[in-house]
Simulated scan of single mutants.
Amino acid sequence: MKFINYYEYNHKMFGYLIIDDQSLQDINTDEYNEYIRILFFPKASQVTVDFDEYNNDGPALFFVGPHQKVRIREADQQDAHFIYYNRDFYCIQIHDAEVACDGILFNNIYNLPRTLLSDNESLFAENLYVQIKEELIAKESSQEEMIRTYLKQLIIRATRAWKKQQLGKLNDEPAKEMEFFRDFSRLVEIHFRKKHGVADYADLLNMAPKTLSAKFNRLNLASPNEIIKDRIVLEAKRLLCYSKYNIKEIAYHLGYEDPAYFNRLFTSKTGLTPAFFKKNNHKTEKVQ
């Protein structure tokens, strides 16, 4: 039986691919760039997301949002898996109460898309991918909901693992502190183009700027100011590489009326001027 590797109905799209030589070429282009993507590597791999390279000695999951750039550099001799879906199929913002991953797996303040897996977690993930594949082949009634159920299990397990790996002492804090972390992450993702100061986000969170900074300092997390600036610079890199905007237009797009100030910020964070970065990294692809 031919493997039917996608589900599509009423603007909802969910697809699945085994990562092999043929599919790798497509995945490494922008063909799936508009989708939410989850990549599973049971063995060692080398993956680039945006401008960061990840060398994985063992099993790993990658959660990549729409318009992020992903490139698989190495995934030899293994059955690696790739699923992609749109927000109409499953929107983590709308269904946040179900999986609580927004601001953690996606849109997290560290810009870390990777979740490392133990052997047991890897077996669990492998089994979910097998069940998703079987569901796509069988095309039984309630297929959409079954696939979504497997997807949610994968997200929930990965969220738990990511928090243990990345959040350190925050895992020992009351649940409301974790929710605060997620709220700040989501607010930065929504507003970073227009709101650049700690006071802006403190106001949105109904607290004093000093209180906001103290929360991060107490848990040895990067300061809110650095987190905001890092997100701005990441977007600037994307636009410098993949858009036709000039540097002045990019500065305006990111909310800076004074391009010189934007230039200083970018240079201080990267050690390179925007012009130099654009000249050495510009691609023909586009971002929206």
Rank of each mutant, 00 (worst) to 15 (best):
R148K: 15
E31L: 15
F51Q: 07
G103D: 03
I27H: 10
G168D: 03
N108L: 00
R238P: 00
Q93N: 06
N280R: 12
L167K: 01
A202W: 03
A100R: 15
A208R: 08
K279Q: 14
L272W: 06
N86Q: 00
H95Q: 00
N280S: 13
K2T: 13
M1T: 13
F62P: 01
L117V: 13
Q165E: 14
K244Y: 07
V49N: 02
C91K: 05
K248N: 15
Y9S: 11
I38A: 04
F266W: 12
D88Q: 10
N127K: 07
Y9H: 13
P59Q: 06
D57L: 04
I4F: 11
P259V: 11
P42Q: 02
G168N: 11
E140G: 09
L170E: 04
S141M: 04
N55P: 01
I18L: 13
F3W: 09
T29W: 04
K237W: 14
L154I: 11
Q153W: 04
L123W: 03
H81M: 11
Y16P: 06
A125Q: 08
K237P: 01
A80I: 10
Y129M: 07
R37V: 10
E74L: 05
F89R: 01
P224K: 13
G271C: 10
K194Q: 13
D258T: 10
N217Q: 12
Y201A: 02
A236C: 09
S213V: 01
Y261E: 14
Q166A: 11
C101I: 15
I155Q: 03
